[in-house]
Amino acid sequence: MTGTKVICFANNKGGSGKSTTCSNVGYGLSALGKKVLLVDGDMQLNLSLSLFEEEQVLDFARSEKNLYEGIRRQADLTGFIVKSPFENLDLIPSSTLMCSIEYELFTKWQREYILKKCMANIVSSGAYDYILIDAPPTLGGWVMNILCASDAVIIPVESSPWGMFGLANMFEFLGEVRQIAPNLETGGVVITKVDTRKSYFRQTLDTLKELDGVKVFDTYIRVDSGVEWSQDNHVPIMAYRKNSRSAGEYMELTREVVQRFERGSTVCIRN
């Protein structure tokens, strides 16, 4: 990939750590000196809440400056970008009205490509090194839009008895999307919420490694209460507690992402 890289984080299983992974990889990329745009595609607003206080996020949701309004109008999303409190990290916030986005898309011409068209000027401008999109935990027309707008998908999978549930449906859906977006890459699977004292992690890892053509990131994310505290304070864990175990794990995952999508790159943290 060259130029702006568009990566979505998707899994039809809720609770996989999708939004947390998206926000922390985004922050990690910004700490490496990359210019990053986060796009909150979920009505739950979690990605927006990872950067802004709840009152501000609700203000975005009630305003006309959010992703729902942009998609509804099929507008250039450049005008919907807001600056985050963190250097090199911007956001297109979500809205609770995203719950009706499928209805908005249903009658539209070439509805699978609306997000791609709305993002076209941002991508072609080269203003960002990475655009990271947080998808909702569903499979349907809106998630297909997100995947069609992306160069690659990263799939967070929770290390738990139910973490693998529905993953086959996710890969089947990706197969359907590739019929109209053949260049979509599976960037890899990242295992989250790992408790190394339990056998679920090894079971999850072994199962994933048995799947043909599925790349599993070397870095996995362990359970850490610090992540919950960072969410409560509306900041990524690397900004909230940069010396914590989770901060280190997310930075290692970020380095893997850069190495995977920028072949031959040397990764150095910006001071």
Rank of each mutant, 00 (worst) to 15 (best):
T2K: 11
G3D: 10
T4G: 01
V6F: 03
A10L: 08
N12H: 09
K13H: 08
G14E: 08
S16H: 00
T21V: 15
N24G: 09
V25W: 00
L29D: 03
L29A: 12
S30C: 08
A31S: 14
K34N: 14
K34H: 13
V36A: 03
V36C: 09
L37C: 06
V39H: 02
D42E: 10
Q44D: 08
L45H: 02
N46H: 11
L47W: 00
S48A: 07
S50Q: 11
V57C: 08
L58F: 04
D59P: 02
A61T: 00
R62I: 03
R72L: 11
A75R: 01
D76V: 08
T78M: 04
T78I: 06
T78W: 05
G79R: 12
G79A: 11
I81L: 01
P85C: 08
E87L: 13
L89G: 02
D90N: 14
L97R: 14
E102V: 13
E102H: 14
F106D: 08
T107F: 11
K108I: 06
K108F: 00
Q110A: 13
R111W: 06
L115G: 01
L115Y: 02
S124Y: 09
S125G: 15
G126K: 12
A127P: 01
A127Y: 03
D129Q: 08
I131W: 04
I131G: 04
I133H: 03
I133F: 03
I133T: 05
A135G: 02
P136S: 11
P137C: 11
P137K: 11
L139P: 01
N145M: 09
L147H: 07
L147N: 12
A149S: 11
S150W: 04
A152N: 11
V153K: 03
V153E: 06
I155Y: 01
V157K: 05
V157E: 10
E158S: 15
S160Q: 10
P161T: 13
W162T: 15
F165G: 12
A168P: 05
N169Q: 14
F171R: 14
F171M: 14
F171V: 12
G175N: 14
G175H: 12
G175L: 10
E176S: 13
V177K: 00
Q179V: 10
Q179C: 07
T186F: 06
G187I: 07
V190Y: 01
I191M: 12
T196R: 06
T196L: 02
R197S: 05
S199M: 09
F201E: 00
R202F: 06
T204E: 05
L205H: 10
L205F: 09
L205E: 10
D206T: 14
V214W: 04
V214Y: 09
V216A: 11
D218Q: 11
T219M: 11
E228K: 15
S230P: 07
Q231K: 13
D232L: 15
H234Q: 09
I237E: 00
M238H: 06
M238K: 05
R241W: 10
K242Y: 12
K242H: 13
R245M: 12
A247N: 03
G248C: 13
E249P: 00
M251F: 15
M251R: 15
M251P: 03
E252N: 15
T254C: 07
R255M: 09
V257I: 15
V257M: 08
F261S: 12
V267C: 13
